[in-house]
Computed example of a mutant assay.
Amino acid sequence: MTTVLLVLHFFVAAALIGVVLLQRSEGGGLGIGSSQGMGNFMSGRGTANLLTRATAVLATIFMALALALGLLNQGTGRQRSLFDSPPAATAPALPAAPVAPAAPSVPTN
């Protein structure tokens, strides 16, 4: 169930990003959502209203899925954070064996 909701959440997030990028911003921005590419289908105002409503619907679905995923994982007993678990136990480092200094070499004639 959680996996299905996660996949659905991913697709809704991607769609929300796309719809937001399609909207015409005040400063020009991407301007992809202009009526020029829509032909006679919709006017500029109709396109803006459609994209605004789509953004609101997708944002509502996104928040509902986020809350549902949070509630589903609330009582699972799973680790909630990386900081909740103690650090992994590592083997104590063995002391290095002392190294005897090498005897000076004496030249032989």
Score class of each variant (00 low, 15 high):
residue 6 L to H: 08
residue 6 L to C: 07
residue 6 L to G: 05
residue 8 L to Q: 12
residue 9 H to L: 02
residue 10 F to N: 10
residue 10 F to H: 12
residue 11 F to I: 10
residue 12 V to S: 01
residue 12 V to E: 01
residue 12 V to H: 00
residue 13 A to T: 14
residue 14 A to D: 10
residue 14 A to F: 11
residue 14 A to I: 12
residue 16 L to I: 02
residue 16 L to D: 02
residue 17 I to C: 08
residue 17 I to F: 12
residue 18 G to N: 03
residue 19 V to L: 01
residue 20 V to T: 14
residue 21 L to M: 11
residue 24 R to Y: 03
residue 24 R to F: 01
residue 25 S to A: 10
residue 25 S to Q: 09
residue 25 S to D: 08
residue 26 E to D: 10
residue 26 E to M: 11
residue 26 E to G: 10
residue 27 G to M: 08
residue 27 G to A: 12
residue 29 G to C: 04
residue 29 G to T: 08
residue 30 L to K: 08
residue 30 L to R: 11
residue 31 G to A: 06
residue 31 G to K: 02
residue 31 G to N: 09
residue 32 I to T: 06
residue 33 G to S: 06
residue 33 G to L: 05
residue 33 G to I: 05
residue 34 S to P: 03
residue 34 S to V: 09
residue 35 S to A: 15
residue 35 S to F: 05
residue 37 G to T: 07
residue 38 M to V: 13
residue 38 M to I: 12
residue 39 G to R: 08
residue 39 G to C: 07
residue 39 G to E: 07
residue 40 N to A: 10
residue 41 F to L: 13
residue 42 M to V: 13
residue 42 M to Q: 15
residue 42 M to L: 15
residue 44 G to E: 15
residue 44 G to I: 04
residue 45 R to L: 13
residue 45 R to C: 02
residue 45 R to W: 12
residue 46 G to W: 06
residue 46 G to F: 04
residue 46 G to H: 11
residue 48 A to P: 02
residue 48 A to I: 02
residue 49 N to H: 12
residue 49 N to E: 11
residue 49 N to D: 12
residue 50 L to I: 12
residue 50 L to Q: 10
residue 50 L to Y: 13
residue 51 L to K: 06
residue 53 R to N: 13
residue 55 T to P: 00
residue 58 L to F: 02
residue 58 L to G: 00
residue 58 L to N: 00
residue 58 L to Y: 00
residue 59 A to I: 00
residue 60 T to C: 07
residue 62 F to E: 08
residue 62 F to T: 01
residue 63 M to N: 03
residue 66 A to G: 13
residue 66 A to S: 15
residue 66 A to M: 12
residue 66 A to Y: 13
residue 67 L to Q: 01
residue 70 G to K: 01
residue 70 G to E: 03
residue 72 L to P: 03
residue 72 L to W: 07
residue 73 N to M: 12
residue 74 Q to K: 15
residue 75 G to T: 14
residue 78 R to Q: 14
residue 78 R to N: 15
residue 78 R to F: 13
residue 79 Q to S: 11
residue 80 R to Y: 02
residue 81 S to A: 14
residue 82 L to F: 15
residue 82 L to Y: 15
residue 82 L to W: 14
residue 84 D to S: 13
residue 84 D to M: 05
residue 85 S to D: 07
residue 85 S to I: 07
residue 86 P to R: 07
residue 88 A to C: 03
residue 89 A to C: 01
residue 89 A to E: 08
residue 89 A to W: 05
residue 89 A to Q: 09
residue 90 T to I: 10
residue 91 A to R: 14
residue 91 A to K: 14
residue 92 P to K: 07
residue 93 A to C: 03
residue 93 A to V: 13
residue 94 L to P: 07
residue 94 L to M: 09
residue 95 P to S: 04
residue 96 A to D: 03
residue 98 P to K: 09
residue 98 P to C: 05
residue 98 P to H: 06
residue 99 V to N: 08
residue 100 A to I: 03
residue 100 A to E: 08
residue 101 P to W: 07
residue 101 P to T: 14
residue 102 A to W: 01
residue 102 A to R: 13
residue 103 A to I: 09
residue 104 P to L: 10
